[in-house]
Design a protein around this nucleic acid. Structure first.
Lengths: 334, 334
DNA sequence: TTGTATGCGTTATCAG
DNA sequence: CTGATAACGCATACAA
């Protein structure tokens, strides 16, 4: 069942059928009525592959995430898919992992499938080699990245990300206001240092300086989830002057919370806690954990808006957008 | 840059170039060497749209989920994407919501994009009208559904799901062994009754009969998360004979846990708790919640295996696969 | 307003 | 082993 069949049955040519399908203006009401009727009763569905080839336009957009199971990624993918679908696009999902080779391989897949734009979610796409590849590609295919900001920024890539320094200013400010004296910084040791890791840490130190007048910085790294939290407890007992913890990530905070609660630490009186990401699980710990909301929905909307401008060669496209995060105070801070 | 350019530069015809690209046997080593060299240095990437049209095969598979943010959905999508990519397919992601009209609309999108198979994740696809549509479609496009089992099953759709009755037998069995006397069943009131809801409930009742010799069934429904948990607490205080709760879903259990803990219920001594799904958050509550693992990875692998058989017209394809769930004992049961 | 004919980039058939 | 050429299903200039 193709356009020729419809043409034959209707008595019109394929050209007219095509015009009807594409809502072209230059079709008589009569022709439109007849053809639409036949299309409906025959259940004909246009072949987008053929259409894409003919129009040199696929209406396909590729979404890349390192791991769709994460909070930021799945939430972003959800919002992206919704908004892009409303705009008439179909989305190809790529779960690239953090491996360079796989990320590059997926880029090929997207190119070969003639996607009209690419959207990457997560700081893994900041990686130099990959970003360089993406930069070149972005001259042909409009690209947007969420939660990514590269050192060598490119005007052909829409970068949207959170102002980590500002976020840390807010969290440290809150702890300071609550009379906390000494804050421990707990981070995840992934083996490589991402920009977001550095930005948060730098912002945290700046904030220390601003609110406390000095940079009394102490970092505790978690590498092995099975062992390092026990070590953390020991560390905190040996260093009871710490009365607050800023976590790099909620995924660390939710686990740490259980260890702390079990050991009888009084939260937030003796020990205030602040996470980062505002994942769901922060609401399921015994006390809901204060955290930083990255405004994913806003990030997505802004990214797509500007990506669309890039697609339309609209010069007003903004390619470097920084958003202020939102501090969400819950039960682990005063 | 297309196959003609490569042909021209290499001195061979497009036919030979195409053969090289597709690793055809009938090409001289010399031709292959020359052409591959030119392809590499020119950075040529084949156009899959054109190829799909010519081959009448897109290597595209559509994945439908009601909401990619859920645990079961995102975990399934992750596994599916991984395994399908390894097999050379590209995946189109559809976040359909539960709305019938959107589900049907997405079906059209997939058809128009000429996907070679469709995989749906979640019991929303059991809905009669949608399932009927899918049944017809499945004659043309092989289909697999995860966590779905329809009343009017069709041989052209691979159904993979968990044996809820068996799962409930395991959980009630555990509670019985732990000397629990009276179990409350807590479910989510979504407005419509899904098969999985009924299956769990029926299985629960069967198990009551088996272990306790009678069906002393009490159900507490949660509709409004803001109010109904308070009501639950009141209910439990007025009915202190309940010494265990079986939740239909972990998403209910993790929230309930906090209310119970706050009210001083001793878990598991006075009140044992068991959830369903084994979502991550069950490990972040103060006591990790005992739950039922649906073996998503296994479901995915089996579904894809049989879907592939359907694609190859292999008669040995199994279209109705029931898996036994795994009880994961944690801290809310003895 | 409608139809004819050609092109989109690739594959595949059939000769050579 | 290689090349010319006709599909694949649709869109669109150009003609009528």
């Amino acid at each position: 069942m193709d356009i020729y069949d419809i043409a034959k049955k209707s008595g019109y040519s394929t050209a007219t059928v095509s015009r009807v399908i594409n809502n072209s203006k230059n079709v008589s009401d009569k022709a439109r009525r007849i053809i639409e009727e036949i299309i409906k009763e025959s259940g004909y569905k246009p072949n987008r592959v053929a259409r894409s080839l003919a129009k040199k336009s696929t209406q396909l957009i590729g979404i890349m995430v390192p791991d769709i199971r994460g909070y930021f990624e799945s939430q972003s993918a959800y919002e992206l898919e919704k908004i892009l679908t409303d705009k008439g696009y179909t989305t190809i999902l790529c779960v690239t992992t953090d491996e360079l080779s796989r990320k590059l391989a997926y880029l090929d897949v997207l190119i070969e499938n003639q996607v009209e734009a690419i959207i990457g979610v997560g700081s893994t796409y900041e990686e130099d080699k990959f970003y360089k590849e993406l930069s070149e590609l972005s001259n042909d295919i409009p690209t947007a990245l969420l939660n990514v900001v590269s050192r060598d920024r490119v005007d052909s890539i829409v970068n949207v990300y959170i102002d980590e320094a500002d976020a840390m200013d807010k969290t440290v400010g809150l702890l300071h206001k609550s009379s906390c004296k000494k804050i421990l910084y707990i981070s995840l040791d992934t083996g490589f240092t991402s920009r977001s890791y550095l930005a948060k840490k730098a912002g945290f130190m700046e904030a220390l300086d601003k609110y406390y007048g000095s940079i009394d910085f102490h970092e505790f790294k978690i590498k092995d989830f099975d062992k390092d939290f026990d070590k953390l407890i020991i560390f905190l007992k040996e260093n009871p002057t710490f009365d607050a913890i800023q976590f790099e990530l909620d995924s660390l905070a939710v686990v740490a919370y259980k260890y702390l609660a079990k050991e009888g630490f009084k939260v937030p009186e003796d020990l205030a806690l602040i996470g980062f990401d505002n994942i769901q699980a922060t609401n399921y710990t015994n006390q809901a954990i204060t955290s930083v909301d990255q405004r994913i929905s806003d990030q997505v909307n802004i990214a797509v808006d500007n990506l669309m401008k890039l697609l339309e060669n609209d010069d007003s496209a903004n390619t470097n957008i920084v958003l202020k995060a939102k501090l969400v105070e819950k039960e682990t801070t005063i």
